[in-house]
């Protein structure tokens, strides 16, 4: 499918150098999706084989369809993820079908989280999350290499401190 997103639009402000996230995030997401899907798939197959009711095959088929959908969508989602550090704010965008972009001025940042689960650590990625006083800000950058994550964290913290102003 061709993406019309190459045309400059609200999600591609002029002069913004977007940084992609690591493609290893695709692997991480596919693995965790596979782990969650394999149990219902197996259960559906076992049920269909044991009961020998033909229409029960619809269940594993549906799970499989979801799996195929995930395989198609996840790489595109990961490619769509991006962030940009500008002089005064951080931009994060994501989404293929439902797209969103958020702009967080550094001065509004309350704290920064860096998280990495076991799978993430194995694959060498981490998640950076910016928190403002608003829970809806939702500035999450998953799939960063750990050194980039800590660099971003320190940079954000430094910039936030320089521009910080109450609530």
């Amino acid at each position: 499918m061709s993406e019309p997103s190459v045309a400059p639009g609200p999600f591609d402000p002029p002069g913004v150098p977007w940084q992609p996230v690591s493609p290893r995030l695709t692997t991480a997401r596919l693995v965790s999706a596979a782990l969650t899907l394999v149990v219902p798939l197996a259960a559906g197959v076992v049920l269909a084989v044991l009961t020998e009711v033909t229409w029960l095959w619809a269940l594993p088929a549906a799970v499989l369809a979801v799996g195929v959908w995930v395989v198609v969508v996840v790489p595109r989602q990961v490619r769509a993820l991006g962030y940009a550090e500008r002089d005064d704010d951080l931009l994060v965008r994501r989404g293929v079908l439902f797209r969103s972009i958020v702009v967080v001025p550094y001065g509004r940042m309350q704290f920064v989280d860096v998280q990495a689960g076991p799978l993430d650590r194995k694959l060498g990625i981490a998640k950076v999350q910016l928190h403002t006083a608003s829970p809806t800000s939702d500035a999450v950058i998953p799939g960063l290499p750990p050194e980039e994550a800590s660099r971003l964290r320190d940079r954000l913290a430094a910039r936030g401190e320089a521009q910080l102003a109450g609530l």
Partner: peptide, 19 residues
């Protein structure tokens, strides 16, 4: 008092050029 700002766009909005 603005904490941060954002845009959202669903598939229908995108077809219509809305945000």
């Amino acid at each position: 008092r603005t904490q941060s700002v954002g845009l959202n766009q669903g598939p229908l909005q995108r077809r219509l050029g809305l945000c």
